[in-house]
């Protein structure tokens, strides 16, 4: 049937839908950890997640490694949200370091966990921007929730 034909032309045929879901979900969880270690704000991480999901709505996993795209999404999101993160720091955390430092680090470093040099993150950032069609503004519900809580005049300890 036509459905099966579609399936065989799918570049992700090697992954089952469940596997795909798992790969993306684990990368998103990873993205949170990286964001935390790099010192990115919650808002940056949320925006990066939205970019990540939007990208894989249109592209397949075999087009671009989710780990690489996650790093690029974080870098782009930090610029949009006006609290820029250092690209080198993001790269170092992706490589598996606990805290970024300038010692023992080269932009061409790769590990088995993350086999990409810094330059590839930057190229991927541009690619991501193009794939998002340059629509980069993301609206979050955080702001309105905070305003809502403030308007409700709840005790500060309740929501912190």
């Amino acid at each position: 049937t036509s459905l099966q034909q579609l399936d065989t032309s799918d570049p992700d045929a090697q992954f089952s839908p469940l596997e795909k879901q798992l790969i993306l979900m684990s990368t998103i969880k990873n993205l949170k950890d990286i964001g935390k270690k790099v010192g990115g704000h919650l808002r940056v991480v949320s925006t990066a997640m939205v970019y990540f999901k939007r990208f894989y709505c249109q592209n397949s996993i075999s087009d671009c490694d989710p780990a690489l795209l996650g790093a690029a999404a974080l870098l782009l999101a930090s610029k949009i949200e006006e609290c820029p993160l250092n690209a080198k720091n993001i790269h170092q955390i992706c490589l598996g370091k606990e805290t970024p430092s300038s010692q023992n680090y080269d932009t061409k470093d790769v590990t088995t966990l993350f086999p990409y040099p810094l330059q590839q993150i930057l190229e991927c950032e541009l690619y991501l921007m193009e794939q998002l069609n340059f629509n980069l503004t993301v609206f979050h519900s955080h702001t309105s929730l905070m305003t809502y809580v403030k308007d409700a005049e709840l005790d500060k300890s309740l929501y912190q």
Partner: peptide
Amino acid sequence: NDEEGIPI
């Protein structure tokens, strides 16, 4: 080709 990617 600098190290911060696309200029902000």
